[in-house]
Structure formats: C-alpha cells, structure tokens
Write a protein that binds this DNA or RNA. Structure first.
Lengths: 122, 122
DNA sequence: AATAGTAGGTACCAATAAGGTACTAAGGAG
DNA sequence: CTCCTTAGTACCTTATTGGTACCTACTATT
C-alpha cells in the first residue's frame, strides 16, 4: 500500500512518488476527488471509480488522509455516513492529473490498437 | 502487469490509464527514458531507477514496447547489449511527467512530515 | 411481524504482482 | 584457469490485491 521510505532518494522524484503515493487505484481516487471538488460519500466515490473494491478504497483513503491529501468526516449515524474531500494540498495535484487525463483521452485509441495488434495478455 | 482491458470504460480516463500503464515502476521507467531522451542500455536504466529488479524492468519494458511507447534494439553480441529509447508517442507524456516530478519535488518534505507525525507503517 | 435493502467498514481466504537469489551465454582480463 | 562482463530467464518466497461473507441499526416493502 502506501509509503515505504526504504528508498526515498533524491535521484528520482518518481521513485519517491511511487513510494509515497502507491497502489493501483491511487491516481484514479485522487483524480475523482479533485474533479468532484466537494464532499463525496464513500459509496458514491466507489461507484465513480468502479470496479474498485471497498477494501482497496478504504485502505487508500486512509493512506491519503495520513498524507494530508484527503479529509475524512464520519457522521455517527446508522447506516453510517462518511464524507471525503480533497484538501488544499491535494488540490495542488490538479494541473498534473488534468494533464494526465487529457493525455489518456488523446492517446487511448492508439494505445489500445497498439496492444491489440501486438497481442498482449487479455 | 500491463493491460487488462476488462474495464476500459469512458467513465474515468484514469481507470483506463492504470489498466494500460500499470505496475509500480511504470511511471519511474517512462520518466527516466523521457529525461534521457536518447538510447540507454538496460543496465544503465536499472541503475538509474534503483532499486528496481531486473525482472520487473524487463517485464515493464516489454509491455511499453508493445504499447509503442518504447523502442528496443538488440545487438547480438556477447555479453549482450540491448538499447532502449522512448518513442515519439512516449515523448508526448513529457509535459505531464515533468509536472508530476515538479509536484513531487515541491511537496516531498511536507508529505514525508505528514506521514511521520501521523505514524504510518514503515 | 418478518424479510430486504441500506452504507461503511472488517475478517478471511484466493489470486495476482513483485522481490530475491541463482543460472545462462561468449569473450576478455588477470 | 578463474573471474568479470550483460541482459535476460527460472524458480521460489513475500507483498499486494481481489472476492466473498459478515457486522451495525434503521427504513421500506411484503
């Protein structure tokens, strides 16, 4: 999951990045919270990032809370209500993730075609 | 590893992204190839992205080759020589990854401090 | 009144991904 | 002769992820 400081070296900021913000669903979760730009409940978040599992979403959100990227508010009701929101620190990732989303939208077809013609494990 | 198309939906470009460009070391590898902007041998690449293992680097590079993000040239010599280079398609990721590297450099201290005070699994 | 659905988890087990050696090839240096 | 080189591969162990089932207590349907 998140944050193994075994190799936080200056050599490569990306290695630092994967050590701090790791996990398959990390970027999709942060991106969804950023584009929402408001509080969002756990269930709504999960549906937006489908097919992430509850367990993974919980684990990642807790890690992001620890890093100060996400705020978590629990309402002691039944059934439970928990609201999440991107922090100011988390919002500083917006330009970067917007850029990544644009890149993906622009090159999705080409990438899919390449991997199909070169036959990859489906 | 790379490319499971089970859930390539339009809902979230980031979910598409993690399905195409997946793996812990994917971003560090692409970033290193992009900043190098020239051919680089397997060993040099591995040392630059330490502590990645040979196996992981090989696996990811093959996946990127399939996606058309990386060129691979084998020289039938002994000891073997294999050179890798980012493609034009791969270079289109440069602004995005530069932005991510800048973000990491700018917020590294804050993130590390947050995770230390909030005590995370080391 | 008994069941079904709700939302945010947790516990447990299976599947997958990643890491750690050791091994290979042909030649050159010591 | 032995060691060292490089880009892998094979084999095995560990870490991460996914797939159910279960819990809480209230509300709506049957």
């Amino acid at each position: 999951m998140a944050t193994i400081f075994t190799h936080l070296d200056d050599k490569c900021p990306m290695v630092d990045f994967v050590n701090l913000v790791s996990g398959k669903w990390a970027i999709p979760i942060l991106y969804r919270l950023i584009v929402t730009d408001d509080v969002i409940r756990f269930g709504a978040l999960q549906r937006a990032i489908a097919p992430i599992t509850q367990k993974e979403l919980t684990k990642q959100l807790r890690a992001f809370e620890t890093l100060g990227l996400v705020d978590r508010t629990v309402y002691p009701e039944m059934p439970p209500r928990v609201e999440y929101q991107i922090t100011e620190l988390g919002k500083t990732l917006k330009p970067t993730l917007d850029s990544l989303a644009d890149w993906m939208r622009e090159h999705r077809e080409q990438l899919m075609q390449a991997s199909e013609t070169n036959s990859i494990n489906l």
